[in-house]
Design a protein around this nucleic acid. Structure first.
Lengths: 340, 340
DNA sequence: ATTGGCACTCCGCGGCAGGGAGTGCCAGCA
DNA sequence: TGCTGGCACTCCCTGCCGCGGAGTGCCAAT
């Protein structure tokens, strides 16, 4: 019983602190939540909670503030999933439905997520690793220059310029194109790479040089780790709400946003199965970001997670609402990728 | 003579204020610049400059700060173009030379510009309006679904999914592909649209429906105004340096960065011929951004300006250095687009 | 036209007192 | 054993005061 009330007190503290942004005291607590006990009792509970490290006070005789550990307990055991409002569901549908291509889907999603959560949203582009090759196109430009276009199952399009020693004839080009496509269409990029190199080996001598250059370009495009590191970011303006804690929360986060590698590490491994992971403050890999939390999940067609998406923000945030929004957007994105 | 010295005083005030971020007084001025006159003289000049509206004091008995009008005069008549350092030139070359496609060029450029100027950099994607069609590809996916890929001379790739009523045979597809390409390759998108519609008219009855859908998709992709509004942004972290003027300068700017339409309006028309335009504070179209300046120019292959690029930042910035960096990056980008 | 001198203004800073919010503890009560 | 009211205490926040410093404006002298 007592234990139950203590947790209720912790929950109330978290909720109030998130709402008011100010340390919360015992009196305000019993007033705003119907706890049915006196402030003195709550004070005792608070002392116990502080003893256990769930809350802290900025200074003697101030109200209490949740610690990272307190948020953790809140997220794990105390929060109930807050269903999205009807308006929010509608927003998701209308916002994402008009998307025309992958870029568009990603951009719209990240924007939407930022708007829903009022935090900084981050969406990773679907990784190349698990996608299959849909089509390869070779286009002759002027001179001996070739444009190689690689289209993947996720809708991603990569292109590379290739300079040949001699121009190819129309028939050579058609031939090369169809041979390459026969070798790779439908394959995953790992197998496609193998197949391509095999192809380059047993090619008639004359076209050998050209083939090998084209193969190299395709492989390069497929294994391009740069693309795996691509992310879209939106909602930096939402940081403006935290003007007070500029130095501890806003500045380091602004700096991190520029470093896409850092962001990817923050998002972490793409968790599959719809689970939303929450990393609170110091639990993350960077001390400079000890005042920021990450709420993330994976998304992708079917049940496989091709990439991560989520939000970053100060530890003081509305976790239930944020988690619901992140999950909803991830689901909807997965569905769109499914259809395409 | 007197007039000359007054201008020298203004220049000194601007330079000192940009460097120190603090109102500059008469004494410090004569010490740090070899003006060869006494502080009292400078005070008289300052009074005159203030009378004319070029400088102002935050409060009585404080140093002077340039007004927007003061910066304007400085930029127009007093600043000498500061050539880039050798290291900076090298940075531009090494940074941009490894670019593999248009996206990459834009991303690298915007990042580079942010780094050079230590401001927020903005690069608009080349507009579709003046580009020509390089190639159209039609790829049959499963069922009656077609992927239309449109490749433009600037390196931009647009793709659209098209659902047909019935699947096309291989020969139908080849035929359609070659007819479309014959009609549009090398054309500007305006003419290409006309040509396509003409094509859709005189097509054998059976393929008519399919052709018209494909044509519609291509035209849609070409006239997509969304793409014209695409911009890349980088360097938001540089705003962290202005933590002091958070509310007047940083917050509104952060909010503006989210609105790509606003950014485009800020960058303004793509000025041609290498001229760098500077818009200072209130000269811009938004009052909320009265504390921010824009330094922008156009870029594009040859001498035509396909798009704009530039930086935005607080009015208190190093104009000569920023202008030099903006111009240098624009030139280098133009050269890269020239080659491709 | 320039300069040195001088009085004046205003900011920024530290110290100080008063009010308020919140706590910890203790003794009393169910 | 657990809850409650009361009470003293701590600490922040605010406003106030006084001071030093930086900078100005003006004036008389050169």
């Amino acid at each position: 019983m007592v234990e139950d009330r203590r947790l209720a007190v912790l929950r109330a503290i978290v909720e109030d602190y998130v709402a008011t942004e100010e340390p919360v005291g015992s009196k305000a607590l019993v007033e705003r939540h119907g706890l049915g006990v006196s402030p003195a009792t709550v004070r005792n509970d608070m002392a116990a909670l502080e003893e256990e490290g769930y809350i802290a006070q900025p200074h003697t005789s101030a109200g209490r503030v949740p610690t990272d550990k307190g948020y953790r307990l809140f997220v794990d055991r105390l929060s109930t999933v807050k269903p999205l409002s009807m308006a929010e569901r509608r927003a998701i549908v209308t916002f994402l439905d008009g998307s025309v291509d992958l870029d568009d889907v990603v951009h719209r999603s990240v924007r939407l997520l930022a708007q829903l959560t009022r935090q900084v949203a981050v969406v990773q582009y679907p990784t190349l690793a698990r996608s299959t090759v849909r089509h390869v196109d070779l286009i002759a430009l002027h001179d001996a220059r070739l444009l190689v276009v690689l289209i993947l199952s996720t809708g991603r399009v990569e292109q590379r310029l290739v300079d040949l020693e001699d121009p190819l004839t129309e028939t050579q080009l058609t031939d090369l194109r169809s041979r390459v496509n026969r070798a790779v269409v439908g394959e995953r990029i790992a197998e496609a790479g193998v197949a391509l190199h095999a192809l380059a080996e047993d090619v008639p001598g004359a076209d050998r040089a050209a083939t090998s250059r084209v193969v190299t370009a395709i492989c390069e495009a497929m294994s391009d780790h740069r693309s795996d590191a691509r992310v879209a970011v939106s909602g930096a303006a939402n940081l403006a709400r935290y003007g007070d804690s500029f130095d501890t929360a806003v500045r380091p986060l602004l700096e991190a946003l520029e470093e896409h590698v850092v962001l990817l590490k923050l998002l972490g491994e793409a968790h599959t199965g719809g689970a939303v992971t929450v990393r609170i403050g110091h639990e993350g890999p960077y001390q400079e970001l000890a005042a920021t939390s990450v709420v993330a999940t994976g998304y992708g067609p079917g049940e496989q997670a091709l990439a991560s998406l989520g939000i970053v923000g100060p530890t003081r945030m509305d976790y239930p609402g944020t988690m619901a929004a992140v999950r909803a957007v991830a689901r909807y994105m997965s569905r769109i990728l499914d259809e395409a």
